[in-house]
């Protein structure tokens, strides 16, 4: 069985001026299996959108090969495209069109008539909470709704692979969680998902595998667990009973502790450090901890460390 996506030696050079060039992808190789939920993490300008655009047929690659379900995008681009649904980073629908028309026209481009597409359009628009808006012009939607509209549009032809370029940018926490649920269910029902994100929590919550991309190169790839094991230090948060003020911090000078909030201290442990020393010091100056927790942003730390290391 061929993988969902097979990328090998992918390079992209943008011509930015008469003599200036910009190498946005520097030989990326990556395989994503069918049914996987894969996340691409990287800072601004890392090359995420460039990569997604090439996969979806919107970008022209400079070098390398890309296969979608075993079909080369050079040899049979139209067939390769038929497997994919794209949710782009920027809004790219006509704001004057009605919501339902945007979705049904997209079905048309994939060869599905309006009549055939209508039941499925109703189903996904309802699932994404947009059915009441179906007769409104897209410009009447809020930012979060527009993003969901792009998801509905990408799903209208029931693609085997869904590419999402920062799908939850500008979406509030509650909606983000419901979008995650939606994507998880979609993945469980068999759709391969590849998403890019800045939200590290998102990758952690959703994906089995993560690749970290920076300056057009994949600098790390593996399961979330594997990436976490590469941590050079661990950060813990201590909730304290007493208020943490400057005087307290002065007494704690030299300890791996930083004031995080009024009642929170941030503890950073390097390999080999023992936690007991720190607690002894704390109780000696009369600070009592109520609770110890992880930051919940572990991946972010891996991310920063990995990027700094390179």
């Amino acid at each position: 069985m061929s993988p969902a996506i097979e990328i090998s030696g992918l390079k992209k050079v943008y011509t930015t001026g008469k003599t200036t060039k910009m190498e946005a992808l520097k030989g990326v190789s990556l395989t994503i299996q069918k049914g996987e939920f894969f996340a691409f993490l990287g800072p601004n300008g890392a090359g995420k959108t460039t990569l997604i655009s090439i996969l979806a047929g919107l970008g022209i690659k400079t070098e390398g090969t890309v296969k979608v379900h075993g079909v080369s995008i050079d040899e049979n681009p139209d067939l390769a495209k038929s497997f994919i649904g794209l949710v782009p980073q920027e809004f790219n629908f006509s704001i004057f069109e009605k919501v339902l028309d945007i979705v049904l026209d997209q079905a048309g481009y994939y060869g599905i008539t309006r009549k055939e597409a209508l039941p499925h359009a109703e189903k996904i628009l309802k699932e994404l909470g947009l059915w009441e808006k179906k007769d409104q012009q897209a410009q009447a939607l809020s930012g979060g709704m527009k993003r969901r509209l792009m998801i509905a549009r990408a799903l209208i032809h029931k693609p085997q692979i869904l590419l999402l370029d920062e799908p939850t940018a500008g979406v509030d926490v509650e909606l983000r969680r419901s979008m995650w649920e939606f994507l998880k269910e979609l993945n469980e029902s068999g759709t391969t998902i590849l998403l890019t994100t800045h939200y590290l929590e998102e990758a952690e919550q959703l994906s089995e595998r993560v690749a970290i991309i920076n300056h057009g190169e994949i600098i790390e790839e593996g399961s979330v667990q594997q990436l976490l094991s590469k941590l050079h230090f661990v950060t813990l948060l201590l909730d304290t009973v007493e208020t943490i003020n400057e005087a307290v911090m002065l007494l704690l000078r030299g300890e791996p502790l930083v004031r995080d909030e009024e009642h929170v201290l941030k503890l950073t442990l390097k390999p080999g450090d023992t936690i007991n020393e720190v607690f002894r010091k704390l109780s000696s100056i009369g600070i009592h901890e109520k609770n110890i927790r992880t930051t919940g942003r572990m991946l972010e730390e891996v991310f920063i460390q990995l990027i700094e290391k390179k």
Partner: peptide, 11 residues
Amino acid sequence: QHVIDEILVSP
């Protein structure tokens, strides 16, 4: 408006 992308991503 990049609306042409709707067509360009299609087969």
